[in-house]
Design a protein around this nucleic acid. Structure first.
Lengths: 144, 144
DNA sequence: CTGGTTTAGTTGATTCTATCAACAAAAAGC
DNA sequence: GCTTTTTGTTGATAGAATCAACTAAACCAG
């Protein structure tokens, strides 16, 4: 039926990753695409904890712990005590993290523009909706 | 506009990878999703060479060399001299490679079914077309 | 034919990404 | 209080990706 549509998905995600990495490298930081995704969660989540990143990105908590450690080491985020839960710490962007996010936002907008060339808003809406459904369809299964 | 649609793409590709890996693990082979993609290229390409895999999957040739080596070690493919070019070797599926491909085809069909639940053929066609366009839009750029 | 360039593939080194298991400390529930 | 759950950390390991250096064959120009 659509034997290779997953290849398009792979292609998009890999090329996006590469493009983002290029944008980051231009900023000469020792971080990768995954750090960026984590930073984005921190930026968009009120009182963000490591666990928020785990759930929002569906990553392993060990992986997130390391990403957070590296973002701290790079001075892009700060870690403060959670007022109500001594296990958690609240992550916030540092000022340099904020600056980076702004640059990345611009880079993302550029990539987004590039990706969506020749596509109508309607098509993009459709695509977005369908992608969302497909992603949901794949959650928590592994009953092959 | 569609600030997070790339996240759906990431989600789909990662979950697909995990699901395929589960299917492979069930077959107790020491190979991963990338090997499967390579095998698929071998299966679908007439007189397939390593370079065909490189271009079709847009992978690094070093990575492909290793994938091929591992597929050979696993006995899933065979390597024969190219009649017209002594630099290249032609890759073909071994009989066990063929068997695996059949199993994987079934597994992929299952995943595909799962992914596409609740979506019409028309929606899938649209999705496929748009994904193709987006992937094309991202080819060879890095002019941020 | 000779020498320079391109192509196909290999290897080494390194980094990023992903997983799993074991663990500590705080919180929540009974 | 005691057990279970949640949050996060660390170790170990495997998979995926990337870059550079290199060989050998092929191609091509003179």
């Amino acid at each position: 039926m659509h034997p290779h549509f997953i290849e398009h998905i792979f292609a998009i995600s890999e090329r996006y990753r590469v493009t983002i990495r290029a944008a980051i490298d231009a900023n000469e930081l020792g971080i990768g695409a995954m750090h960026v995704r984590s930073l984005t969660v921190v930026a968009e989540t009120l009182d963000c904890t490591a666990n928020n990143i785990v759930t929002k990105l569906s990553r392993d908590k060990a992986q997130v712990a390391r990403l957070v450690k590296e973002l701290l080491a790079a001075g892009l985020i700060e870690k403060d005590a959670h007022p109500e839960d001594k296990r958690s710490q609240i992550l916030t962007l540092s000022s340099s993290g904020n600056t980076l996010m702004k640059q990345l936002k611009a880079a993302k907008a550029t990539i987004q523009l590039q990706m969506t060339q020749g596509l109508s808003t309607h098509e993009l809406d459709l695509f977005n909706t369908i992608a969302h459904k497909i992603a949901d369809n794949l959650v928590c299964n592994n009953t092959l």
